[in-house]
Write a protein that binds this DNA or RNA. Structure first.
Lengths: 347, 347
DNA sequence: ATGAAAGCGCTAACAC
DNA sequence: GTGTTAGCGCTTTCAT
């Protein structure tokens, strides 16, 4: 328990009575080692508990086999599921993950995070911080200020940058259409914070669906939340008073929708009869809300997987000095209809 | 955008017309550099966009300033909040985080994860995988097979190992006591999977509370879930039929409690009048369930923070060859009483 | 099939 | 206050 210094390749070589190159060959599965020598060296490695140093290897090979992941808001459900996908896929593809979490959603603190990653010589970067306000402006201006392959999650299309995201606009439009199909004449909307790119997309989708159904969109028909159940509660109370004729509502995420359900119970609003409700995200609990919540399932695990795959492709092309066209990958979602929006069957 | 190779200390030295040693001094804020030289070098560093290589530095210093974090089930709320705390604190204390997620809760796949960390020469390890079945046996037998300071989260006290955890036993006992105080005569329990250490602790706490109130504990009074709302639903239906006189229930986590609430609604069981319900974890949404859920708040963010602090202490002592007594840190929880358990006020 | 030498980018130890 | 030398643990190139 006390031999602090770890075993090195030289010690293995001495113990085995060979040169360190031969040991190195065994480590890297090179063919040109006598079977007998190989077995002997493997035995010594095992006996000494030798583990080659990734640090030394990274230095000489000029590649760390590590990807840097920058995230924010890990205490939220979405980002952590994405991270889940990233770690799984990275491991599968032979990469380690260096994780950085920004203290907020990335206003002003980008440079230190980036410096840490550059310093560690990561082979590629996944920028898993959603686009909020101007927090991505840095990259739009300075793309190429660092020359590490980088992929961005959940941001709008931007020249020269590769992105991965779900189809927010389309999904929002579809779920709003579903509410209209259920016979809702007045479909309200609770948004997330307006400076989020996703939020703008979802709101635009809601507007498009109404517009397609020849309905007007006015200011009193929507309200702004902050993702939490509490903020959903507040936003909903606001709508109840300013848009009383509302008989359907598309809520920007499931947590806020839960806040809506609670206010409805307290106020004697019957769901879905008086008000059809749909959420967004598809968190597992939503099927157990009361009533079970209609929502849009976005596969955030898959989002993580796909981004790793694309990034590794970028890394490889970069190494071989091949030019690679920036890619914009869009993942589909799936509406899951549950009781909270089923007006028609209740008639 | 195309100069692939990154700038090195030698290039900075040449450009500045000094030796690399002087540049190194500036990088490490050594006092013995002429102010003028320092400014000049800093200007060159800035101009060239030089970032020192953590890889080379790690190699020579024999320390990586990186901690390895091993986790599992990131798609659950608890582990990701803990990770949140870990990243925050690690960054604050000048450490980077290398993240590994086990595919399951750690049966059989421990060695590769450990190898990855050793290979990367992390300075310390946070084993944030809860103790389940025999998944920690490896460490109990082979402690010291690797000589990296390691701290374990959410596992029972074990000789020679440092641990951090919340007081599961006490919390469970307290919340069960609360249900009894509310006048419940028959308090049931839904556990998580029985091979989890936490689950055993919580069950024992529930039993102790009943025992203190001179109630008998029999097999028909409890049922086993798997953490999900769906499994809570199943377990509760089982209890309804095998323990019909039940008028209170302590559920092993909030998600399963949500499943209980749904079944109650469907079956016309009135909460809390017919049945008082308490959960465990204190996820933010629990205050918006219907009715709002009484639960035990465990601060998993704090759990992460504390573990980093303790680990850094261990790392420092280890470096200085000081012996450090293995530490077992226990964090307190807080019961938050909401409508779901307030029988007395309804009388 | 194996070994010797060089060097990745940096810092520690010692000159001057 | 600054430069020189050596070396961290490994892989690459070139001999043998």
């Amino acid at each position: 328990m006390n031999n602090k210094k770890s075993v090195t390749i030289v010690q293995v070589a001495e113990e085995a009575g060979v040169s360190k190159q031969t040991v190195s060959r065994v480590l890297n599965d090179r063919p040109d080692v006598a079977p007998e020598t190989r077995r002997h060296i493997e035995e010594v490695i095992e006996r000494l508990g030798y583990r080659p140093s990734a640090v030394a290897r990274s230095l000489i090979q000029q590649r760390s086999s590590t990807i840097g992941v920058v995230t924010a808001g890990l205490n939220f459900v979405g980002p952590s599921r994405t991270l889940n996908g990233i770690t799984n896929k990275a491991e599968e593809m032979g990469y380690s993950v260096l994780l950085i979490e920004l203290p907020d959603f990335g206003f002003g603190d980008i440079r230190p995070a980036l410096d840490t990653l550059i310093t560690h010589r990561v082979d590629g970067i996944i920028w898993a911080v959603p686009e909020v306000g101007e927090n991505h402006a840095f990259f739009q201006e300075e793309h190429g200020s660092h020359n590490i392959p980088t992929i961005f999650l959940t941001m709008g299309d931007t020249p020269h940058l590769s992105t991965v995201k779900i189809n927010n606009y389309h999904s929002a439009k579809e779920v709003t259409g579903h509410l209209i199909d259920q016979g809702c004449l007045h479909v309200a909307h609770i948004t997330g914070p307006l400076d989020w790119w996703e939020v703008q997309e979802r709101k635009a989708g809601w507007e498009a669906a109404l517009s397609d159904a020849s309905r007007k969109v006015t200011e009193d028909m929507w309200s702004v939340g902050k993702w939490s159940s509490r903020s959903g509660e507040t936003a909903f109370r606001e709508l109840v008073s300013k848009y009383p004729q509302m008989d359907g509502i598309f809520v920007g995420n499931d947590q806020m929708a839960l806040g809506v359900l609670q206010v409805a119970h307290q106020s004697g609003i019957c769901i879905p009869k008086d008000l059809a409700v749909a959420g967004f995200d598809g968190i597992p609990e939503s099927g157990y809300y009361w009533p079970p919540l209609t929502t849009v399932i976005q596969d955030q695990h898959e989002l993580g997987c796909v981004s790793v795959q694309e990034l590794v492709g970028m890394i490889n092309d970069y190494r071989e000095e091949k030019f690679r066209e920036p890619n914009s990958i869009i993942l589909d979602t799936r509406i899951i209809v549950r009781e909270s929006s089923l007006k028609s069957t209740n008639h």
